[in-house]
């Protein structure tokens, strides 16, 4: 690595420094736009006691779900955790700590964390279990709760394309939490489908500037589909 070149040559190098009990922020929505190979590397490393901040926790054999059987995840902060039998078992048995967080609040916690904003007020969750223990305040006659932002020791991100400087372009709804996660990691690791030379991406089309990215690796992806829904090819809109 030299200068602004963020490209690393192996997954081992990509996740170097990840150690027990760290917090990892993960992009992805369901199985869409997840850093498949970075998650595989975490499984291979066997790092334990991790706290994950991620909208979901994968399925039993794919995505973050593969870190469950070896009890690598101590706690998860997520908005929706269905679709995963082992997850449910560990949660019910009290082996896995789960902090359910509204999806918009979760996104904003990452965004604010990455932007150096320690907390924010939101109406979301007021008067619900989410508000328990949180400061409440009225603005213009409406009730809000104070939510603290989140940063992580690591962020794992999946983008479509990058240049070697770590400027990122996402593709379709695989964007989701990824740009937010990218801003909130002390070390942000990104895996992409294609790496190009600096100057090849149109600066106007870059979703995440390279300043947020520390390590970059090109991978191949399974891109598993969670709910395959189709219409017959002869019907028109």
């Amino acid at each position: 690595m030299a200068g602004f070149d963020k490209v690393v040559s192996s997954y081992e190098e990509a996740m170097a420094g990840l150690s027990d009990n760290m917090t990892v922020i993960s992009g992805g929505f369901g199985l869409c736009g997840i850093a498949e190979n970075l998650i595989n590397e975490i499984q291979r490393k066997g790092t334990k006691g991790l706290t994950f901040v991620s909208n979901n926790c994968g399925v039993d054999d794919f995505g973050l779900g593969i870190l469950l059987p070896n009890r690598q995840i101590k706690k998860i902060i997520a908005s929706y955790v269905g679709e995963n039998a082992e997850f449910e078992r560990q949660m019910m048995a009290g082996e896995l700590e789960v902090e359910l967080t509204p999806q918009g609040t979760l996104a904003e916690k990452m965004r604010a964390g990455g932007a150096g904003i320690p907390a924010f007020f939101t109406a979301t969750g007021y008067g619900t279990p989410v508000a328990e223990g949180k400061e409440e305040r009225q603005f213009n006659g409406r009730d809000y709760i104070l939510e603290e932002s989140i940063t992580g020791d690591f962020a794992i991100v999946k983008a479509w394309k990058a240049d070697r400087y770590g400027n990122l372009v996402f593709r379709k709804t695989a964007r989701n939490f990824n740009p937010l996660a990218a801003t909130a990691g002390k070390i942000t690791v990104v895996e992409v489908e294609e790496i190009v030379e600096p100057g090849e991406l149109d600066p106007d089309q870059i979703h995440t500037p390279g300043i947020y990215v520390d390590r970059l690796i090109q991978g191949t992806f399974e891109k598993r589909i969670e709910q395959r829904t189709v219409r017959p090819s002869d019907t028109e809109a």
Binding site: F29, K172, R224, V230, P232, S233
Partner: peptide
């Protein structure tokens, strides 16, 4: 959001909030 894709149109990077291909 549009309708569900045909078999040929399916794109793993394009889903709705129910995680269905769209």
């Amino acid at each position: 959001m549009g309708q569900f894709p045909t078999e040929e149109e399916i794109d793993a990077d394009l889903i709705n909030a129910g995680k269905q291909t769209v």
